[in-house]
């Protein structure tokens, strides 16, 4: 099969002071830009350069934290440019070994509804809920149709950040089917832990309670952050999501929500996870076919 050329502008290299290098792949979000960021940061990780402290793929860009006493930032930029030169196309055999994860979500739940009603003065449409507003803005007949779209196709984790464990998730559908919403006019001062939010073209699960500006759509019964590391899925890390994970935010009812909560409290809950060899080139050529395969593997 032929290689898929990533039609993207040349990357922009910027020094974030003496300790960071920021590389903007594109100003607009796209899966192509994210795949390029993942490819370059993955290759950088394999080089195991002394002095590279943190490698952070971030949606349509990436950020590297460097110890300039061990690696000159200009030398790092030279290395990154050479990696970019070899990442202008995705070859058919390029594989991202990743996980597909089922993440249950109770959409239109009582907790985020209570929260969003407290902050209507900061919202574009004080007379509607966040889901009603987003459904209208994106041309859906109503909230059920929006939830079906949110819950139907999987997402890819394109960045972790803001606070520990927060996954930025971009839905794996062509741009004309992407859901896009603005952030709140002024951020809320409160968001419940595990709220499922949406801002710009990104879905997130808030790891901890706190401020937030994303539209509130639902609540996940299972955590993405566990400082005590008592749940089995957190044995190796206090955060569950990883950049490159593929997740499905599956709509559940109150009964299943309660059941998962009981399992979380009993420390027996485990996410449904399947290993998957994801081929970005195949995906870009036929997204729906790959998505069907992903869901088939996940629920096999």
């Amino acid at each position: 099969m032929a290689a898929t050329t990533l039609a993207l502008p040349p990357a922009r290299y910027e020094y974030g002071g003496d300790e960071f290098v920021f590389v903007e792949i594109d100003q607009a979000m796209s899966l192509e830009a994210n795949f390029k960021a993942m490819t370059i940061t993955g290759a950088l990780r394999e080089r195991r350069l002394d002095g590279v402290l943190d490698i952070c793929p971030s949606n349509a860009s990436y950020l590297i934290r460097v110890d300039p006493e061990r690696l000159h930032p200009a030398e790092l930029v030279d290395q990154l440019r050479s990696l970019e030169a070899s990442a202008t196309e995705l070859t058919a055999d390029q594989v991202l070994s990743t996980r597909v994860v089922d993440v249950p979500v109770l959409y239109d739940d009582p907790w985020t509804r209570e929260t969003l009603l407290r902050f209507r003065d900061r919202h574009q449409d004080p007379g509607a809920t966040d889901l009603e507003y987003a459904a209208r803005l994106n041309g859906f007949d109503g909230v059920p149709q929006l939830v079906e779209a949110l819950s139907g196709a999987p997402y890819i984790v394109t960045m972790l950040g803001f606070v520990p464990g927060l996954p930025f998730c971009y839905q794996m559908v062509p741009r004309d089917r992407q859901i896009e919403v603005p952030k709140y006019i002024r951020p809320r001062t409160d968001t419940p832990e595990r709220a499922f939010g949406y801002g710009g073209a990104f879905a997130v699960v808030y790891p901890v309670r706190g401020a937030g500006g994303y539209q509130l759509f639902g609540m996940a019964p299972a955590p993405v952050f566990d400082l005590s590391q008592t749940l089995p899925d957190f044995a190796e890390s206090i955060v569950f999501p990883k950049a490159g994970d593929i997740v499905r935010y599956r709509a559940i009812d109150q009964a299943e929500f309660d059941q998962v909560r009981r399992e979380v409290e009993a420390k027996t809950f485990r996410y449904r996870i399947r290993e998957f060899e994801f081929r970005p080139g195949d995906f870009l050529a036929d997204p729906d076919a790959v998505n069907n395969e992903l869901l088939e593997v996940l629920y096999r």
Partner: peptide, 21 residues
């Protein structure tokens, strides 16, 4: 505004912030 950035002119597609930025 580019796709995914959000509508405010101060917004960009979410990205990493250097310490000190």
């Amino acid at each position: 505004q580019p796709f995914g950035a959000g509508s405010d002119p101060a917004n960009v597609v979410d990205l990493g912030y250097p310490v000190g930025s």
